[in-house]
């Protein structure tokens, strides 16, 4: 089992390759979309690279759940994620910082749940 530093370094390298960013941009708190400029297409590329670099399998939707709080999900009211929706986020994204999100649960902030740290924790859980 690699240390958390080793996991971070490998995740950092993965994101540098997938997103063409500099390694000093890839900090634990960096958000994939907002800070690192990832687009939806990049998520598949990141999954491929993580699987290869860590020799793990990542089933569809486990690292990057799809259709989170979409308009017809029933988890959104007035542009905010409902309490039920937040419970669902906790379940689907156990490695994301849902607590901070819950303080201001605007739908537009959902993408900020996808951080470098979330990927590191996901990978660490897979490697256990």
């Amino acid at each position: 089992m690699p240390s958390s530093e080793e996991i971070f370094e490998k995740v950092q390298e993965t994101l540098v390759d997938a997103l063409g960013v500099d390694d000093d941009e890839v900090t634990p708190s960096a958000t994939l979309i907002g800070d690192l400029g990832a687009e939806s297409i990049d998520f598949l590329d990141i999954v491929f690279r993580l699987e290869k670099n860590f020799d793990i399998k990542i089933p569809r939707g486990e690292l990057f759940p799809e259709n989170l709080a979409s308009a017809d999900s029933g988890f959104v009211a007035d542009g905010k994620v409902t309490t039920d929706g937040i419970a669902q986020l906790r379940e689907k994204m156990p490695h994301a910082d849902v607590d901070s999100f819950a303080k201001d649960p605007q739908v537009s902030r959902i993408q900020d749940l996808f951080t470098v740290d979330m990927i590191c924790k996901f990978v660490a859980a897979r490697l256990k």
Binding site: L44, D45, F48, E51, K52, R60
Partner: peptide, 10 residues
């Protein structure tokens, strides 16, 4: 072929 899955491949 490096990856091939339901969502896509590389």
């Amino acid at each position: 072929l490096q990856d091939a899955r339901v969502e896509g491949g590389s």
